[in-house]
Design a protein around this nucleic acid. Structure first.
Lengths: 141, 141
DNA sequence: GTAAGTGCAAACCTTTTGCAATCGG
DNA sequence: CCGATTGCAAAAGGTTTGCACTTAC
């Protein structure tokens, strides 16, 4: 994890983003939790390493990380208020419905499906959103 | 479209749901728009056929239709506040990024992808969320 | 006729914003 | 040191809820 952390921090530096205590706290919360978290949960966890952390900074940092592609929204049928770490570039999430564990992946060959839908609808498909849900190894027991 | 409308209305009756003026207005707005709509947009459109329609009823009806599987949330990177009609059972949306036109489909063979992810992560994958975005025939011009 | 559903207004929650104080490079 | 960032508190959305009235069946 700490490799991952450094990778993102390095990327942030490269983007000319200041690494403040608040931003590190938000990033660490997401990296250490290894699951999707709401802003409130990030706030609670982040305060452990940065007691003065405000909810406003959590939102500002989440928006920043999302705009730089380091964090993604996690969707569900009702609520879409959770965030999870994402690798650089196109990626998707594999989520444990039981414990929330969230794993990002990039491999997703939808070409046959996309080609079929394009042929049948006349659409030009440009992007896709994909999320897989199930039970992680621990929760299967 | 009016076939579709009847199908959903019949399904509602079968579920023992009362077909009120407000509910019909919400359903018609979504069916006629053929695109994803926010609650506020449904409200505005719905008032054309039911002037007294309140936003509260729009929310209540959307929740009802969603719980019965006739309506789905449409997700995007930032906002997830739009709704669209969905066919009975498992389905996904194909969305035009330009005009919002939304088309629901059910065919999605992700078995190879799912099998691969299960093998590599130990997860037992139970469900998935998929959305395709691009340009519809009209907007491609 | 009666229970389910509606409209209204108030309550709620989450997210955003203005601003003076603080901090990172 | 200087501008970017923060915390706070207030504002702004969007959504939900309590309640008396209305409506579908």
């Amino acid at each position: 994890m700490s490799d991952n952390e450094h990778a993102i921090e390095r990327a942030l530096r490269r983007s000319g983003v200041r690494l403040t205590r608040a931003r590190r706290a938000v990033l660490d919360a997401l990296l250490e939790a290894e699951r999707h978290l709401t802003a409130a949960q990030v706030h609670a966890l982040g305060r452990q390493s940065c007691p003065s952390l405000s909810l406003a900074s959590v939102y500002r940092t989440l928006a920043l990380l999302q705009s730089l592609g380091h964090v993604q929204l996690v969707h569900s049928d009702d609520d879409c208020q959770s965030y999870a770490v994402a690798p650089a570039g196109h990626s998707h999430q594999l989520i444990c419905s039981a414990c929330g564990w969230t794993y990002a992946f990039s491999e997703c060959d939808l070409s046959p499906l996309v080609a079929d839908m394009e042929a049948r609808t006349g659409f030009r498909i440009v992007e896709h959103l994909l999320e897989l849900r199930g039970l992680c190894p621990k929760c299967r027991e």
